[in-house]
């Protein structure tokens, strides 16, 4: 089974991100693989470990995204494809899906697995558009894979009334929920091997996309500016024995929020 996992490199949200003049300050940012994409990669690795085959990771961006691709290779992906561009900052889901679709149009694969959404934009639109552009079936928010073959796969997803089980003919696109698998940790050997695995770089302009797709005219949505969310108000710590602190908490809830009044 040949599996494609498109991954997105995003700012590490655990760190303090600064915004200036409506733009994110780049210095001091630590970049990581979007967490749902890590789950997608884990799912792909487990599938190929079970059914055989290879995992190709793919990302669009400047040379910096090679860090994310190398991490994916360290985790076990077999090869990487870097779609090189000057900057993908400000691109919307439509543009990304167009580039991915064009890149994958001539590739052989059975399955495309992505995170259910990106950790930074939280849009969750790219996989669906990608499936549409490629003319492939898609099932979202997968929690488990069963009965894997090169021609079809059984998928579990959480529905309103329980687990929905569907069978999808392949090739197809699935998005995964983070409950599907816990992403593995990289090993020292994996990290050292990553450098020796193939990473192909393709210039985005060589894909033959219509020029307007890569320009602002190709945007379906535009982020006008970034703003830092309001700081969370300081919490209050109640210290001491619970016989003292519980009544104190109750009193505060009554007085300040009107609870139990």
């Amino acid at each position: 089974m040949q599996i494609i996992v498109p991954i997105k490199q995003v700012p590490d949200v655990a760190l303090n991100i600064k915004v200036k003049d409506g733009e994110i300050v780049q210095e001091g940012i630590s970049w990581v693989i979007s967490s749902w994409d890590e789950t997608a990669l884990e799912a792909a690795l487990q599938l190929t470990e079970e059914a055989g085959g290879e995992v190709t990771v793919l990302s669009i961006g400047t040379a910096k995204v090679q860090e994310a691709l190398r991490k994916a290779l360290a985790l076990g992906a077999h090869q990487a494809l870097h779609i090189q561009c000057d900057s993908s900052a400000g691109w919307d889901s439509y543009q990304v899906a167009k580039v991915l679709a064009k890149t994958l149009a001539d590739q052989d694969y059975n399955l495309i697995i992505t995170g259910k959404q990106a950790q930074d934009s939280d849009a969750g639109l790219t996989p669906t558009m990608l499936a549409e552009f490629l003319g492939l079936p898609q099932v979202t928010n997968i929690t488990a894979f069963k009965d894997v073959s090169d021609a079809s796969i059984t998928l579990h997803r959480k529905g309103d009334d329980g687990i929905e089980i569907s069978k999808m003919t392949l090739p197809g696109v699935v998005t995964v929920n983070d409950s599907l698998a816990e992403p593995r940790l990289a090993s020292m050997r994996g990290i050292m091997m990553a450098k020796k695995k193939p990473m192909e770089t393709v210039d985005i302009h060589s894909l033959g996309l219509a020029p307007e797709v890569l320009q602002s005219g190709g945007l379906m949505t535009e982020v006008v500016q970034y703003e830092k969310p309001d700081e969370r108000k300081e919490g209050r710590r109640f210290e001491g024995d619970e016989t003292e602190t519980v009544p104190e908490v109750m009193q505060n809830l009554k007085k300040n929020i009107g609870l139990f009044a």
Partner: peptide, 22 residues
Amino acid sequence: ESFDADTLDLMLQESEKFSGEV
């Protein structure tokens, strides 16, 4: 020779993750 800049960076990042999470 295996410990170039990219590899060092990734090892620092992953050892921190391992230490914190495991």
